[in-house]
Design a protein around this nucleic acid. Structure first.
Lengths: 209, 209
DNA sequence: GTCTATAGCCAGATAGAC
DNA sequence: GTCTATCTGGCTATAGAC
């Protein structure tokens, strides 16, 4: 008897969690497609198929909802880097992370980074879980960057933070959108094209010695 | 008598034009700092020091106002490229244009490119003057890109449009904002840093033969 | 053309029944 | 917790006097 009650509660909680996931996933898509300001809570609720008031039982504000979506994508990024073989070279791991983020963007699953002067940014900076994860993720990538620089494959004259920001920025690079709108290239071609310009630049490479 | 009347009218028109320029310039700054959605017509009017209704005598809508600002920055870009010596190498001219756009961004004078799915974009695409200028500007840069590729200094394997978009995207690269927020580098250092990663990439260059 | 005042609308957030 | 219905504030845009 007791166990059935427990199972029942657990089932309810699972349903609740599943709904919350659906809300965040939907918000994530709208954030990726339209940005925080243009996204409305109404359309998120409508797309999920619930009333707006129900959504507000899960999230206290639009910023709170968007922050949950940003936290979700950050968690996914952390899960992704766990799948990378430890034997891979640091430079290859960095490339893999950028490739992953660009694929997410092309699939409309990557919300754009909030502007410096944005209310969403304020909400994120007030979220310790987000901040902690972002710092841990940045330190992981920062370690790879420094290793690659010591190995001589990544330009050692570049500040590690500048490299880090450059990689982060690929997740919201409008070049992907432009090339996709052109309709001339497949998603994978676009990813490899932009990945190449990111690491090798636009100039012609000197032939390897 | 007639001449004084003409002069008077001309003076009035000049004042009117000056006011309109002030409005567009202010709108341009807010577009650069907050983006189209977050900018309000109220704050533009307040910053200029006029009533909102007066602003609407000059521009029929918020989109119209923003389009005027986008047209203005495009005209400035066209004026800038006219100052480049014809004797400069194409690659140097491209570099100069990107440097100019990044300086404008750091000075909060460069409005962000509108998203593909934005009402501002629709207004711009409906503006023949803007479209014509954008096409002319793109063809000018496109010519320089192809020349640089034929000279072998710009990677000939990259599609010219991909190069063009990559250069355009530097004007709204969040990396500049991030590095500026860090407070560790001067604006000029940031510009040269990002210019370097754009053309030469993140990887270590093979030593020149 | 400039102003004050306001219309009209829309989106974020809430009240209260079930 | 979910819903319908509503409040509230802010923003675009306009009316009308001067």
């Amino acid at each position: 008897m007791n166990s059935s009650k427990v199972a029942k509660v657990s089932f309810k909680e699972q349903m609740l969690q599943a709904r919350e996931d659906a809300i965040v996933q939907t918000a994530n898509r709208f954030l990726a497609e339209k940005g925080f300001e243009a996204m409305t809570v109404d359309e998120v609720a409508a797309a999920v198929g619930i009333a707006k008031a129900s959504l507000y039982k899960h999230f206290t504000s639009k910023e709170d909802l968007a922050a949950a979506a940003m936290l979700r994508i950050l968690k996914q990024a952390q899960e992704f880097v766990l799948t990378l073989p430890a034997t891979d070279a640091p430079l290859d791991k960095l490339r893999a992370v950028v490739r992953w983020s660009m694929r997410m963007q092309l699939a409309s699953d990557m919300p754009a980074l909030p502007r410096q002067n944005s209310c969403l940014r304020a909400a994120l900076m007030a979220n310790p879980d987000y901040l902690d994860r972002l710092m841990a993720f940045s330190q992981l990538l920062g370690g790879w960057i420094e290793s690659a620089q010591q190995q001589g494959v990544l330009n050692p004259e570049l500040p590690a933070t500048a490299v880090l920001y450059t990689l982060y920025a690929r997740a919201c690079d409008p070049v992907l959108e432009f090339l996709k709108a052109g309709g001339q290239y497949s998603d994978e071609q676009i990813v490899e094209l932009v990945l190449g310009t990111c690491f090798d630049g636009l100039r012609t490479r000197a032939p390897a010695k």
